[in-house]
Design a protein around this nucleic acid. Structure first.
Length: 895
DNA sequence: TATCCGACAGGAA
DNA sequence: TTCCTGTCGGATA
């Protein structure tokens, strides 16, 4: 059973409506088996002893009554043990006028005239095996409307294939006009159900004349009443709408019986309940087929939009209002200011940010009117709202949604003040432009006139350097003026660069929701030097949070919010763990510290063994084996033993997982080729590499028996897992023997130097790593170029090196005494064994003594110290090209 | 030859 | 479903 069938069945119940069979018809409509219904009807399945009542285990409690208070009744039933022990999913009571129902699983309730049951078909969908849990926090009206539009869209599309961009645009415009009409007839812009009724009574049921009818109707809506001639009443009854929505001639699509019916069905929804802010995104997802799987996965939730709007401008306006209260002159000035504010979303989608911002401004305006006892009308002009959107349909919807928002706010205004402007004709909102924001001149979209107060906001698209298509690559290259550095930049950085340019030296600020990548690791050095070259600063930031909205498939990404303004001596804030913390500066890492940027470097900043990335198989998985696979081959071909090596990456090392790889030295190639299962795997590697789209990988098809990149040396080594949970106080490192292959998800130092182990294991290093490393989501993503090579280390005497070894061995000893546990368990911050913790603490102190005699008191102090050292080392390298000796530095300062 | 990261990915609870 | 935590390999220097 699909939704459409259920709806049709429900409509059939109503005509003619039969009290006796109602409940059975209802169950049948949701696809319950006829045989069960029959048994229920005959009493076999009915667990209730009371006449008239029906209890169907797990499914239903039903009680028809006359003249009783239904609400009281249903509350009693809800609490009745005799009912609940059968665990019915739904409780339904009705006097055949009103129907009340409770969904006992979700606690949703239904309270409707029984004849409207078809409208609320979704309530009982769990009977048909369809749960509504995924929409629980979503406004059901939005979801329903989006689903209905999807159905209508599919029907129309069937008979009106769109091939050219013009045809697509045509259909997009048509749909936004329809949406407007549906909304208008439910919210008092038109007469109640005027549009839907007109269609159902004035067009043929086979849909044949609907196209012509709509074309005529839309012309009427674009014609002022005074200019209309000889129109039949059913057309003339429609008001003049204008506002650009019906201005251009776009032919309506052709209709069939089915698509006409789908249109009428859509009209029958209660459109007045929809939220244009979120609804727009859902509709957009429905219409853009590639997004349909993840219905609205990229729309920004209202709470997150508020996180942008409030610090960007709303808090300030609210404060201004509070302090102006009682001072009419100041209040009027504030009104003037609000009326002139421009809002600009250069990636506006279906307009969520603009709509929420618009609504908030209208609400503030209402509060001011109240404080002034003003009799004025709203003067916040949709013309001050600007947007750029790549997707044509979204951009149509954005314009439409702004109108809907305006109308909803006018209604709110009417409730409060008893007066409002007429809804029609619509005013111009010509400012949502379709285009690629990275290529459009923003000032052409949102003109910057002397004195204008402009806020730029939004949630531009994020694409890492490896997932951009060639167009996007070009966009990025242009944003970075062709500088080489652009090649690792995220797509969103284009918006940051353009916005920074836009606001510089203007009365303007911007804030975006962004991927957290741009404020981490490698990317900081790519983007932020360019931004800070201008006279702008970060004035607020939200620390990383996981992306979430109410869509079925949320996008998998971790976000931040960053706000920038021209340099000013006003407070700055970091929002962290629900706290708002005032800080003196916010740097490119979103930390309260100087604008230092740690660039990756190929070699260590002071003498120390090189750290390199492990060996990368790039093999399609064919060179890598589970212990079982390895044993199977070995048991048949004992000679294969020499070809296997243990393979250790982050996961294997931290979680103690055993994994093997085929590691064939040139001498062993003959053996390998003599073993059929190995031979097969080598062939598979060849296939994988030759068919890869990466040119470098194709090249490695010449050596299919080997890892593509072989960092391994036959020496003992230190392993540095690349990715590690941020919850741990220490990233666990370890020594590896010369046989073990370290994979590309870990780094390695080809030397078992205890003093290096000591330094990288120290708290000082951890603090440094947490500050500078890239992240996988919020995990630590260690890198040699950033974390290790830049880490300021003092020069050490041999004695010092040796004395550090003692502390390292103590740590290994402590780990060994819990050898049954994995490192993940040992380094779980909540369960770390005291002995291990103490061993690490002792090592921390020993390492810190190598830097200075005075102990550190906090991680902040450690970090500040390290950054100062880092700066000195960089400075020294630049000026003298010599290496820095840490021991002497602090004493020099004292003198 | 060596990297750094992913509007993620995949197993555990 | 929610929580937790790290693979694999592309693209480019």
């Amino acid at each position: 059973m699909n939704i459409a069938q259920i709806e049709t069945a429900l409509q059939k119940i109503l005509k003619p409506f039969n009290k006796e069979s109602f409940i059975y018809d209802l169950l049948l409509a949701y696809g319950q088996p006829k045989a069960s219904i029959k048994r229920l009807q005959e009493g076999g399945l009915n667990l209730s002893k009371t006449a008239g009542e029906i209890i169907w285990k797990k499914k239903l409690f039903f009680k028809p009554v006359e003249g009783e208070d239904l609400h009281v009744l249903i509350d009693t039933i809800k609490a009745d043990d005799k009912v609940t022990k059968h665990d019915p999913r739904f409780i339904i009571v009705t006097d055949f006028q009103t129907l009340l129902a409770i969904d006992r699983k979700t606690s949703d309730t239904l309270d409707i005239p029984i004849l409207e049951i078809a409208k609320h078909f979704d309530f009982f969908l769990p009977w048909a095996g369809m749960e509504k849990a995924q929409h629980q926090n979503e406004n059901p009206a939005d979801v329903k409307a989006a689903e209905r539009m999807a159905k209508l869209y599919d029907e129309i599309k069937k008979d009106n294939p769109t091939k050219t961009p013009e045809e697509v645009h045509n259909l997009n415009v048509f749909l936004s006009r329809l949406l407007f009409c549906f909304f208008a007839e439910d919210t008092g812009i038109f007469e109640k159900v005027q549009f839907t009724n007109a269609i159902s009574s004035h067009t043929q049921t086979d849909g044949s004349d609907l196209q012509a009818y709509l074309d005529k109707l839309f012309v009427v809506m674009n014609t002022e009443n005074s200019k209309r001639k000889n129109l039949p009443h059913y057309l003339d009854a429609f008001p003049y709408v204008n506002g650009g929505l019906f201005r251009n001639k776009h032919q309506a699509p052709a209709f069939t019986r089915r698509s006409r019916q789908a249109l009428i069905d859509s009209g029958q929804l209660e459109w007045k309940d929809i939220n244009p802010d979120i609804f727009g995104s859902m509709i957009q997802a429905v219409i853009t087929p590639e997004h349909r799987g993840g219905l609205g996965m990229h729309y920004t939730s209202v709470p997150n939009i508020m996180k942008v709007i409030e610090p960007l401008f709303l808090n300030e306006l609210n404060e201004a209002f509070e302090s102006a209260k009682g001072n009419n002159k100041a209040l009027n000035q504030l009104l003037q200011r609000i009326w002139n504010i421009k809002l600009f979303d250069p990636a506006c989608g279906s307009g969520n940010f603009l709509i929420i911002a618009y609504k908030e401004l209208r609400r503030l305006e209402m509060r001011i009117f109240k404080a002034l006892s003003s009799l004025a009308f709203s003067n916040i002009n949709l013309g001050n709202f600007y947007g750029i959107e790549l997707d044509d349909f979204a951009h149509e919807i954005a314009t439409l949604s702004l109108w809907l928002a305006e109308h909803q706010m006018n209604q709110e205004f009417f409730k409060e003040f008893g007066r409002t402007k007429p809804a029609l004709p619509l005013k111009e909102t010509g400012n949502i432009v379709q285009g690629n924001a990275t290529r459009v001149d923003w000032e052409k979209v949102c003109p910057k006139i002397e004195g204008d107060e402009i806020y730029i906001l939004g949630n531009p698209p994020y694409y890492g350097a490896r997932v951009q298509d060639s167009e996007q690559k070009t966009d990025v290259r242009n944003a970075y003026n062709n500088e080489k550095i652009h090649k690792d930049a995220d797509y969103i950085s284009c918006w940051f660069i353009q916005a920074a340019e836009f606001i510089e030296n203007a009365n303007s600020r911007f804030a975006f929701v962004s991927t957290n990548s741009i404020c981490q690791g490698d990317h900081v050095a790519i983007l932020w030097p360019r931004i800070f070259k201008k006279s702008v600063e970060i004035f607020f930031a939200y620390e990383a949070f996981k992306w979430s909205n109410n869509a079925k498939d949320e996008a998998g990404v971790t976000c931040i919010i960053v706000g920038l303004r021209n340099i000013q001596s006003l407070p700055k804030f970091i929002y962290k763990n629900q706290l708002k913390i005032q800080v003196s500066n916010i740097n490119g890492y979103l930390a309260n510290a100087k604008n230092i940027i740690v660039e990756k470097r190929a070699d260590p900043i002071s003498p120390r063994p090189k750290m390199v990335m492990g060996s990368q198989a790039r093999d399609g998985g064919f060179l890598i084996l589970s212990p079982l696979e390895k044993e199977q081959i070995e048991s048949m071909y004992p000679a294969a033993s020499v070809l296997f090596r243990k393979l250790v990456g982050s996961e294997e090392f931290i979680n103690g997982i055993e994994r093997w790889c085929i590691w064939i030295s040139d001498n062993d190639l003959k053996i390998a080729e003599s073993i059929p299962p190995i031979q097969t795997r080598i062939k598979s590697v060849y296939q994988f590499r030759i068919s890869s789209k990466a040119k470098t990988t194709n090249g490695y098809s010449a050596i299919p028996h080997k890892f593509a990149q072989r960092a391994h040396k036959n020496t003992g080594s230190i392993i540095i897992p690349a990715v590690s949970s941020e919850r741990r106080d220490y990233i666990p490192f370890g020594f590896m023997d010369e046989k073990t292959i370290i994979s590309n998800r870990a780094f390695t130092i080809h030397e078992q130097a205890p003093y290096i182990f000591a330094f990288i294991s120290s708290k000082l290093h951890m603090v440094w790593v947490k500050a500078t490393a890239g992240r996988l989501e919020t995990r630590i993503n260690y890198s040699s170029g950033i974390c290790y090579n830049n880490f300021p280390m003092p020069m050490l005497s041999d004695n010092q090196k040796e004395s550090l070894a003692v502390f390292v061995f103590k740590i290994l000893e402590e780990r060994e005494s819990h050898s049954e546990k994995t490192l993940a368990q040992l380094y779980d911050p909540d369960k770390m064994p005291p002995g291990l913790k103490e061993a690490h603490h002792q090592l921390d102190l020993a390492v810190e003594r190598c830097y200075r005699s005075k102990p550190f008191e906090s991680d902040e102090e450690r970090l500040e110290y390290l950054f100062k050292l880092y700066e000195q080392m960089i400075e020294e390298e630049k000026t003298k090209g010599t290496l820095f000796e840490v021991e002497k530095r602090p004493t020099k300062k004292k003198k």
